[in-house]
Amino acid sequence: MKITVVLVMMLSMQVFAISVHAAATLTGDAIARQGNGNGAPPCMSCHGDKGQGVPAVGRPYLAGQSKTYLVKQLTDFLNKRRSNSVMQPIASALTAQEINAVATYYSRLPLRAAPNKQKNGAQGTIGESLASKGKWSVGMPACFKCHGDKGQGIAPNFPAISGQSSKYLKAQLEHWQKGERSNDPVGLMQAVVEHLNDAEIAAVTKYISAQSPAKAK
């Protein structure tokens, strides 16, 4: 009997603790630095201490991306419209409030330095042509038509891509091709990747990655 009471008390305390935890609003900054203490590790452990990403291993920068875009991505990891075994459980561990807070935090964080130290991508290459002119012979618009004339993104729906990890960009295009990512509004990216072969994907992601991330106003 005693044991049962104790158990019930412990359980209710735990429930209480969880509800307290959910009610207390963690700041975006705190989540980014320390995680939410409920299964979501600190964002910065993978995305860099300033949200600049780790280009060499394909971890994207988050700093300066629009809040709407970041909220949507976290939500889409949950509903598997963006399949990712690392991000899916992390997004699941975050409450809607926390998602909102952490997205706000990163959207306000300036992307300070170019994460890539490479020289600017060569002009007159296939990569440059695809990024700035597209391949209209098959109906493909330029990347920069929707992602900003310098790849700086067009808030709220089109993320910045210039200076982004080439490994990350390449993986995304391939995920769209394979249907592992299907969260693009109006299916715009799925329509684009239909027209790209492996060599073009390699060229265009290398070019975009080598551009300095321009600031959008």
Binding site: G139, M140, P141, K145, C146, V186, G187, L188, A191, V192
Partner: peptide, 8 residues
């Protein structure tokens, strides 16, 4: 229209 999805 939409851009890149003509005929859709």
């Amino acid at each position: 229209m939409p851009l890149g999805k003509g005929g859709s």
